[in-house]
């Protein structure tokens, strides 16, 4: 039994992984066929991973209702909406198309609720910026100046402001306008820093992948035996 619990998953990881690596370099029809098949299989398995996420959420709310925890009425509402949406999408309307109840629900219930929930962050960001965005140190000042140049340089107001100053005080024309400054920050220094992060990330991905394939990294198997 121990073989199935520990060794078999490791063998599967290594065999599948190395086959994928070899198929990257080799155009052999046999390997390419296997590679194409693996893509199909992953899509189907990944779909069940999504369903498991949904299942976990439903379980959490079910437990809340069963134990009659505070606010369990909301969980009942959640279930009613879930069942209604699923009924419409699976039983009432075969195939999802514009003009049906399912898409109506998506357009007028799901979408506005998602957008509004995320737009709350605009308020909290403003409040956090007011309270915490301080030029305490040199580094923080650099960050603050970078943020301010981008924020004003990327909206029409920044361009209008720069043009106005350039027209009024001719000497300032040797200094680039705010939009140009923001563009330069984005495409040179910030891009360089982002690339440094990307390169570090790529080294990390490659190293972790190889550790997994060679069976050194096993945390994905979780705890237990």
């Amino acid at each position: 039994m121990g073989f199935f619990k520990r060794q078999l998953p490791m063998i599967i990881v290594s065999v599948v992984g190395f086959l994928m690596i070899v198929s990257y370099f080799s155009p052999a029809p046999f390997l390419q066929g296997m590679f194409t098949g693996a893509n199909e299989w992953v899509q189907i398995i990944a779909n069940f991973a999504l369903v498991i996420g949904v299942f976990s959420l439903m379980r959490a709310h079910y437990i809340k209702i069963k134990r009659k925890e505070a606010g369990y009425g909301y969980s009942i509402v959640m279930y009613i909406c879930l069942i209604f949406m699923t009924f419409v999408g699976l039983a009432l309307e075969r195939n999802i198309k514009s003009g049906g109840v399912f898409m109506w629900m998506f357009k007028w219930v799901n979408t506005p609720l998602t957008m509004t929930t995320f737009s709350l962050l605009a308020f909290y960001i403003a409040s956090a910026a007011y309270r915490a965005f301080r030029a305490r140190t040199f580094d923080a000042t650099v960050m603050l100046v970078g943020a301010l140049i981008l924020m004003i340089g990327r909206v029409p107001l920044g361009a209008m402001l720069s043009d106005f100053v350039h027209q009024q005080i001719t000497v300032t024309q040797i200094i680039p306008g705010l939009p140009e400054m923001a563009g330069w920050l984005l495409s040179v220094p910030a891009m360089a820093a982002r690339r440094a992060i990307f390169l570090g990330l790529a080294v990390g991905i490659v190293a972790t992948s190889l550790r997994i394939l060679f069976g050194i990294e096993r945390t994905y198997m979780g705890g237990g035996d």
Binding site: Y74, S75, I83, G89, V109
Partner: peptide
């Protein structure tokens, strides 16, 4: 908030199917 969770989860189930 709970209507949002319910409707969007229902949407996921249908699409997954």
């Amino acid at each position: 908030e709970h209507i949002y969770v319910g409707v969007s989860t229902g949407y996921l189930i249908c699409i997954a199917y």
